[in-house]
Each structure stands twice: as structure tokens, then as C-alpha cells.
Amino acid sequence: MKAGIIVFPGSNCDRDIQVALGQSLDSLPDMIWHREATLPDLDLIVVPGGFSYGDYLRSGAMAAHSPAMREVVARAKAGVPVLAICNGFQILTECGLLPGILMPNTDLKFVCRDVFLRVENPSTPFTHHYEDGEVIRVPVAHHDGNYFVDPDTYQDLIAHDQIAFRYCDDGGEVNEGANPNGSLDNIAGVVNRDRTVLGMMPHPERLADEQLGGTDGRALFDGLVAALS
């Protein structure tokens, strides 16, 4: 299985995801500069976290139009799985691959800490190594993580079971106190209707190694590799 990571000016989680995903693969994923207009054959594309183009205009808005992303959109539409984390999630909403938008956090502060997530849909290639309703601990680090969709699109997300993760407390209860950024219905991650594209604000790649304080993110990468190999 071959994975590629798209790197933008301002990406800063590209190396982390390369190492974390590399643990589950037998080789390291390729790093692909955003100016590449053609991509190699890939079984998985990762759009990593960071601050592409300094978050100018809106987070992810500039990166969404880079040559590599045009190709990512085409591949995603052809069914190639895409994992997008943090800034990657913002970029995918700007490309239209995922619904909604990530607005500035309600309290206007950068939030950088571990949060708890409840796995809401374990029937995706990204989440199938978790149990339904399982509570995992994963860090967030963002200023614009406040997920918003219009009411009709929200109903659509619910109807098609597209909410992958919700912010919750350590007991698994989804409530306002556990919401780090004001996201609608505590949404932390969504998949597309085909379950081939996942966007999430928290960083599973930052807790995928015991030496870094935890391994709750590891199952996402192991599961993804198992599903795609």
C-alpha cells in the first residue's frame, strides 16, 4: 500500500503524520510538494495539519486551489481515500470535498490540549478498529476549529451517519463543557457520504506512540492500513 502526504508552505504536522502512519505501514509515506500537478499512484492521500499560507483570507482557502489539491479532489472523487487532519480538514471543506466550514473558536483563543472524543461511526475504513461509542484521548491544537454547517446540511450529515467523532468528557458524555471550540453538536470529525474521506480537527498522529504519552490515535492508522492493504 502506498500513501502520500501533501506538503504546503506552512504545514507543520507533515513529518508527524509521516512517522505515525509509517509505523503502521512497511514503508514511509511519500512527501508531495503542493506545486505538483500530477500525483503518483496512491492508495491513500493525507492532507496534514499546520498553517498553510499563514491562514490568509480563511484557513485552508488558499491551499484549496494549489495544483496538488486539484489532483487530490479528482482522486477523491474517483474513490481514493483521503485523511485530512486539522488544517487538512479546513482545506477539504474549502475544496468542497467535505461539507461545512471551520470558523474561529468561539472564545477566540488558540486551544492546545488533550480532549476526549467519542467514536460515533466505527463503520468507516478510518474508525473500524475502534468500538462504537469508544472514548479516546487525542490532542487538539487550533484557532479555527469551530465546525459549522447550515441546518439542512446538518440533517443530511445525521441522516447519512457522517459524524465520525464528537467531543465528549472522559466519561463519554457529549456536552457543552467538553466542547473546546464551539463546534455545532460537538462535531470533531466528519466523513463524506461514501466514507472514503475523513476530516477531523484533533491530531491522532500526536498520540500514536507510548513515548509521546499515549497510543489512542494508533488504531486509526492501523485500521486504515488494514482496510486498504
Binding site: L57, A61, H65, M103, F148
Partner: peptide
């Protein structure tokens, strides 16, 4: 429509 405004918000 292509870049400056996001029609969602």
C-alpha cells in the same frame, strides 16, 4: 465565488 467568499457562511 471561487475564492474570496465562502458561501457556507
Amino acid at each position: 465565488t471561487k475564492l474570496l467568499a465562502n458561501p457556507v457562511i
